[in-house]
């Protein structure tokens, strides 16, 4: 198992390099880092410009440029942001922490609820609750996150306070302005709506995967064997049904990490939540190459990491997968 994980992660490194190289090219072409810098610092001295180009690997050759960027990146010799000339890491670190918190909460809620709903629907295929779940999942998939965000904001920011005279769930930020230090209740209240928005997507997707996967499993012979042992229906369902149905769901889950991050970006922007999504869009809008590259590396790395985790858990869940 350990060697399997090691070999898979060994593969991840060249992939990471290749993809970041492509991203580097795309961003250099798309954001024109030099022009953005000149726009923000019209009176920069020649040596300042040279230093900026050196740190960001903006030489004329893309390949050597990428490697000089890479050298600075891995030695933590990161350039400062174009706008405001700020240190990148503290800002990125906070954004990642906030996003990870939101993403983890939404994924946890979404996966638990989605799987439960999928199981619930699969028990009586074609029955009333199956149709209801299926329809609800479709509605969930068909509502883009920005629309559910807007509708929730409309409901809570405008009408809730109008009707009840208080603010139940704030619709922006992690804390009210001026709040210092950690406050769990406030944080949960602020996170509630964006969590719901992202979780809706996760629920819609997972309930459908789980339903169809479990339906396949329920028709298999070993379910009958399990029943013939005299096990309780619940045990038959969990240990033989759900346990086996999870295997295909796990593989799909890995591919979904991209969708969840995408949902986060949209949701964070609407709820003014200081995560990577907001970080990305403002940096992208400013063409801020020094802010964008590290974020891209993190995104690519996390996509690869989750793929790796899915591969490994797949191998653990399904003994038929050969590890060598």
């Amino acid at each position: 198992m350990f060697r399997f994980a090691l070999r898979r992660s060994a593969w991840a490194i060249p992939t990471l390099l290749l993809v970041t190289f492509l991203v580097y090219i795309a961003l250099r072409m798309g954001t024109d880092p030099l022009a953005s810098y000149m726009r923000s610092n019209p009176r920069a001295t020649r040596s300042k410009i040279a230093q900026y180009k050196e740190l960001n690997g903006l030489g004329s050759n893309y390949v050597t440029g990428y490697f000089s960027w890479l050298k600075n990146f891995v030695t933590f010799n990161w350039p400062k942001s174009i706008k405001g000339s700020r240190e990148v890491w503290p800002e990125l670190k906070d954004a990642i922490a906030n996003s990870a918190r939101l993403g983890a909460a939404a994924t946890a809620v979404g996966v638990v609820v989605g799987l439960a709903i999928g199981i619930f629907a699969a028990l009586r295929p074609g029955g009333k609750r199956d149709v209801a779940v299926n329809t609800a999942a479709f509605v969930g998939i068909s509502i883009p996150p920005y629309i559910s965000s807007i509708l929730l904001q409309l409901l809570f920011a405008v009408y809730w306070s109008k009707w009840f005279g208080n603010t139940l769930f704030p619709t922006s930020g992690v804390y009210p302005p001026g709040q210092e230090g950690f406050d769990l209740v406030l944080m949960i209240k602020h996170m509630a709506l964006p969590t719901v928005v992202v979780a809706i997507q996760v629920i819609a997707v997972y309930s459908r995967y789980m339903r169809s996967s479990l339906l396949d499993v329920l028709n298999s012979d070993y379910m009958r064997t399990a029943r013939s042992k005299g096990l309780s229906e619940f045990r038959v369902l969990m240990r033989h049904g759900v346990r086996n149905a999870l295997i295909p769901v796990i593989t799909i889950a890995a591919l979904d990490i991209g969708a969840i991050v995408g949902g986060l970006i949209i949701t964070e922007n609407i709820f003014d939540y200081p995560g990577t999504g907001k970080y990305f869009l403002s940096a992208f809008g400013n063409g801020d190459f020094p802010l964008l590259m590290p974020l891209m590396v993190i995104i690519v790395a996390s996509v690869l990491l989750f793929n790796l985790i899915a591969d490994i858990s797949y191998a653990i869940l399904d003994p038929r997968i050969r590890l060598d």
Partner: peptide, 18 residues
């Protein structure tokens, strides 16, 4: 499974693979 138990036709699919 205690007093009355059963052996099925297709042994390839009668056992849970996981």
């Amino acid at each position: 499974g205690r007093l009355l138990s059963m052996v099925f036709q297709d042994p390839l699919s009668a056992l849970n693979p996981v």
